[in-house]
């Protein structure tokens, strides 16, 4: 039986900040329809890895998504959704204005996220009046616009209440069933472990360097 071609592939992916290695020779494959947990201690390089794959940070080595080398073309980026750890929208902007901008840039409808009703704050609400969790929901909705085939989510549940957390996981599982490859960076394995197919552990490795170990563990036998 042949192994399916991985949708996301990294080979020797490395990143240094001023000669300090953050990611070192990372190798990792994820098939389509897999939810991978990117975990590790604080400063292990989880956010940096997602930023590399989102085309925001340069790196050495290589990464491919669906056969195209990353950072990909504009057409490829249309299929990638990215959620930063903590994004600050202008306080005076309304939720509707924020969504309008990103819907336009992604050429996607506001209701194309697959998120449950009530997840995204009211369109007329000003960002400045939103709680941290509500802002996180708005940013999550932007990442999910147009149902991207590769989702890069940096601590997506950090500020969410239990309903929103459950709702988000439900949505991510639905995306995974549709074939999306999802990388979730989180320092807490316990939260994600029930939903993850794969774990990429960016733990410190005293033998090969500070963040050399890309530990691939199949938790549930793939998608």
């Amino acid at each position: 039986m042949s192994t399916p071609e991985p949708a996301l592939r990294m080979h020797g992916l490395s990143k240094r900040y001023r000669h300090v290695p953050v990611l070192d020779e990372l190798c990792f494959d994820a098939p389509a329809g897999a939810l991978a947990l990117v975990t590790g201690t604080n400063g292990a390089g989880k956010s940096t890895l997602l930023r590399c794959l989102a085309g925001l940070t340069s790196f050495t080595g290589s990464a491919w998504f669906r056969g195209e080398r990353l950072p990909g073309s504009i057409a490829t980026r249309r299929h990638i959704g990215y959620l930063p750890q903590d994004v600050g929208f202008p306080e005076a902007a309304t939720v509707g204005e924020v969504l309008e901008l990103f819907c336009g840039l992604r050429r996607a409808a506001p209701d194309s996220t697959g998120l449950a009703d009530g997840f995204v704050p009211d369109a007329d609400a000003q960002v400045g009046t939103l709680s941290g969790g509500q802002r996180q929901r708005l940013a999550t909705a932007i990442a999910l616009l147009g149902r991207p085939e590769l989702l890069l989510l940096d601590e997506p549940t950090a500020n969410l209440d239990s309903w929103a957390r459950g709702s988000l996981w439900e949505t991510l599982r639905a995306h995974r069933r549709e074939g999306a490859t999802i990388l979730v960076a989180s320092p807490r394995e316990d939260e994600v472990v029930g939903s993850a197919d794969l774990t990429l552990n960016l733990s410190a490795d005293p033998v090969r360097g500070p963040h050399a170990l890309a530990e691939l563990a199949t938790v549930r036998g793939g998608a």
Binding site: G55, I74, R77, Y82, V87, F89, F102, L105
Partner: peptide, 15 residues
């Protein structure tokens, strides 16, 4: 850039 909004914009399918 400071608010990480620039990274969210740069991650969109635009130049």
């Amino acid at each position: 850039r400071e608010r990480d909004l620039l990274s969210l914009l740069a991650a969109q399918p635009i130049r």
